[in-house]
């Protein structure tokens, strides 16, 4: 079997859906962040697949895009962990469904 663009795209879509499901269903804030990370890497996989099978110009912009996504995701997770730490200090829990001071 020849592995073509479709295979990568389907894998990317599956990973994206799994990540999305994790982000929605996890109660632990860190778990949600892991789900988001999976979604972002699904996007990266999709982009890299386009880079492999596209023209030289597409390859360049997709690869630049991927590098930016990796860098920004790291920044986002850093802030996310810092906020999770503050929440933990205040509440002794980082469970998303038990931080319900604000609702309604």
């Amino acid at each position: 079997m020849i592995i073509g663009l479709e295979h990568y795209l389907v894998l990317g879509a599956l990973l994206f859906c799994i990540g999305f499901f994790i982000a929605l269903s996890k109660k632990n804030a860190i778990g949600v962040l892991i789900g988001v990370e999976l979604m972002l890497n699904a996007v990266n996989l999709t982009l890299v697949a386009f880079s492999r099978f596209g023209s030289a110009e597409v390859a360049l912009s997709t690869q630049v895009f991927v590098v930016f996504i990796i860098a920004v995701a790291a920044a986002e997770v850093a802030v996310g962990l810092a906020l999770a730490l503050v929440v933990y200090r205040n509440r002794q829990t980082i469970s998303v469904d038990r931080t319900t001071l604000l609702k309604g």
């Binding site: 990540g19 804030a29 986002e76 996310g80 906020l83 503050v86 205040n90 931080t99 001071l101 604000l102």
Partner: peptide, 18 residues
């Protein structure tokens, strides 16, 4: 209140940007 609002904003925002 601030940390809870910030964390919720970040988690939903991260999903939205993905």
């Amino acid at each position: 209140w601030g940390s809870e609002g910030g964390l919720k904003y970040l988690l939903t925002g991260a999903v939205a940007s993905a």
